[in-house]
Design a protein around this nucleic acid. Structure first.
Lengths: 269, 269
DNA sequence: TCACAAACGATCAATATCAATCATATTGCA
DNA sequence: TGCAATATGATTGATATTGATCGTTTGTGA
């Protein structure tokens, strides 16, 4: 076995488990202890893993993507104040007792903060949203079944016959990667799949997008503008974009952000 | 077991319960008292936990209060060391890559501690189990859909057509409120409903019950002894009860609860 | 208060891991 | 082929970790 081959195996082993012993790697690669030690030492100076007594461990162990305290690593903090203002408007549309659907996403996640005092049946496909609502609210929480995708933080079933089909709501709330004349756009095929499943289970589709999303385009179209009942965005939206929504018959709600920093929002692209 | 591995287990144990005894950690890691003490001392100076007489406690109480913090308020601490020992045996039945189903419950919850190094598709109807596995392991986690019942900590769908029916596993692990000649008994109708849904999705049914459950009776019978492939319990089981299982063709595994008698484990066959 | 058991700290032997060295095998190149 | 460079595997002595045992301390209940 060649050096590169061993390194690949070792690195992948370290990814799988938080800590891998020298002996395990010896068994794995059928090479000697001395060689493994040399490999570990080499990978250590390359900063591809950390060398510890007895073996090696992953360099950045817990990337616990998106649970509880820090829902979605980077995205979470981008435009947080806008997202929060938008989310507040979204929650204000809801009446206690009225069932809603919340699709997973960084903007929709912000809604949980305003749902704490409420009492509604809430259906979601987002593990972090469910987690937060369970902890901090008395709402009835319903979850879609399926595999939990860590990266996207959603739960998705490859089958069509899940509980989703049995839940009906007045409103569904969702984010998006882009919003243009062609409709709602999303980047990740997995998200598309999850969203299309939910989209028919509610009367009104409410879209939460910060104003930068009007200037973003993406490869996948989720649905046309006509399907959207309401768009909630921040005051960075331009007249031309507002007009576009108006002519499509979409209700527009503009959330005022306390600190009016319009310039910054355009930079984040 | 290696130092890092132990430290991870100890820290995760301390997160679960406010206080963990040295003896529990010994059972958990299969290492000696002295080693555990050294580990606690090391983690103490690292300020990762607080060392107290008899064991260790979490450093800051409001680490994550709520779900993961105290999965099942009261029940959790009852017979904890037995439950852990039983859970360890349960996990040792599993092979990496082999899909399993874990039904929600205080005993089955303990399995999560031993699943951290593993890589298996795991289906569960328990929110806390899913939560812990997502945080602390790389297993593929699948969740059943439906309403989350806070009291029982399970997710239940009133409909028959959920993802559950699409998941198949070699083994299903479950607890129970009682186990007698008539079979497996449960107290809560909601739990019965959840369990019966899962029970047909696996070849082998593995039941995890501490020995006190042999003397408990309950109102609802879940299934007969003949449906059970394996029972895992602690060494408090009486001969008469063991005989009952034997004549019903059930494999019995007795988990040793203290580190004192390693020889007894060989009797488990 | 006293007796007792559990928990603790220190010590030591056994074991595991490591680093250094040398011998051997493989590769690249003239 | 012959030679040098490199990679690998085995050996050995050094070092670190572990588990058992001891006597001591601490907490508990009579």
């Amino acid at each position: 076995m060649h050096e590169k081959e061993r390194h690949r195996i070792i690195l992948s082993a370290v990814q799988e488990k938080p800590v891998v012993t020298v002996q395990e790697m010896v068994d794995l690669t059928e090479s000697s202890e001395a060689t493994i030690r040399r490999d570990i030492a080499a990978l250590h100076v390359q900063k591809r893993l950390r060398r510890v007594r007895g073996g090696a461990e992953a360099l950045s162990p817990p990337q616990f993507i998106g649970l509880a305290g820090r829902p979605f690593s980077v995205n979470e903090t981008i435009n947080a104040s806008q997202k929060r203002a938008i989310a507040r408007e979204a929650v204000e549309l809801c009446k206690d007792g009225e069932p809603i659907i919340i699709n997973g996403g960084t903007t929709t996640f912000q809604m949980v903060h305003f749902l704490t005092g409420r009492r509604m049946p809430i259906f979601t496909n987002s593990f972090p949203i469910a987690e937060h609502l369970l902890r901090h609210s008395k709402n009835t929480v319903m979850l879609s079944g399926g595999t939990i995708y860590r990266e996207q933080n959603i739960i998705l079933s490859p089958f069509d016959n899940d509980v989703t089909r049995n839940f009906y709501a007045r409103r569904m709330f969702m984010g998006a990667q882009g919003l243009g004349p062609l409709g709602l756009m999303e980047g990740d095929p997995l998200l598309i799949q999850a969203e299309q499943k939910l989209i028919d289970q509610a009367d009104e589709l409410v879209v939460l997008v910060d104003s930068s999303k009007f200037r973003k385009r993406s490869s996948l179209i989720l649905c046309g503008l006509s399907r959207i009942a309401t768009v909630i965005t921040d005051d960075g939206i331009e007249d031309r974009e507002a007009k576009m929504l108006e002519t499509a018959g979409v209700t527009l709600i503009v959330a005022r952000t306390t600190a009016s920093n319009k310039e910054e929002s355009s930079l984040q692209a």
